[in-house]
Write a protein that binds this DNA or RNA. Structure first.
Length: 211
DNA sequence: GGTAGGATGGGCT
DNA sequence: GCCCATCCTACCC
């Protein structure tokens, strides 16, 4: 989904009903949508589903705590947490209110506010490295733990549909950097997109006839 | 091209 | 006290 020509046009903000589905459905449906924060925006090209319940990789697996409260709350809100003492990761809460489940946003293809994003990521040499990883994504977009719990169906941090929806090919792979439930194919990405944090292994790439 | 190791702090046992 | 849903640098082909 390289958009070398012209300006990306934004469609409507995704409504709470978009998020009020199971986390795997939401993780797949978010591919090709636009994360927008102020002037900065990017196409979501890589996600991971963190269903609650039996998935021990999910923060919510061990129940309701001060940290996991947001994940059990209403859909369409941001869950932001600190990882490795240094970086922050943005999730979008899925599932109905009272049920745990969220989607980690792992990589964006930047389409707007590039100058601002480069200022926030002075070390990123290539455009492909600006937001290609969960920690890089939050840095580039100016998202911090101050955004934990905010409603992403009402600005300034929102997800929008593109003005012209395009069919999105989806590949599924194991999630990155986890030990529990490491084999479950709950990472979703647009195969061949150069902005993903890591390419899918060829054997795991969905072919057009599989969709 | 590749990988090993360190930085750094909150959550939970 | 241990475990991380990570990133960057140094160093080695």
């Amino acid at each position: 989904m390289m958009t070398k020509t012209g300006r990306m046009r934004f469609g409507p903000i995704l409504k709470p009903s978009f998020y009020q589905r199971d986390s795997v459905t939401v993780a797949r449906a978010l591919l090709g949508k636009l994360l927008v924060h102020g002037d900065a925006a990017g196409i979501i090209v890589e996600t991971e589903a963190y269903p609650g319940g039996a998935d021990l990789a999910s923060h919510s697996a061990r129940g309701l705590t001060p940290r996991t409260r947001v994940i059990f709350g209403p859909p369409g809100h941001a869950y932001v947490f600190l990882i490795y003492g240094m970086y922050e990761c943005l999730n979008l809460v899925a599932e109905p209110d009272g049920t745990a489940g969220c989607v980690l946003l792992r990589a964006l293809e930047p389409v707007a506010g590039l100058e601002q994003m480069r200022e926030r990521r002075p070390r990123a040499r290539r455009l492909e490295d600006l937001a290609s990883g969960p920690g890089r994504l939050t840095l580039a977009m100016g998202i911090t733990r101050a955004h934990n719990g905010v409603d992403v169906t009402r600005g300034p941090l929102v997800v929008r549909a593109p003005a012209v929806a395009l069919p999105v090919e989806i590949a599924a792979t194991p999630r990155i950097g986890i030990r529990q439930s490491a084999d479950r194919p709950l990472r979703f990405l647009i195969p061949g997109n150069p902005f993903v944090s890591r390419p899918a292994a060829p054997a795991n790439q969905a072919r057009p006839q599989d969709l």
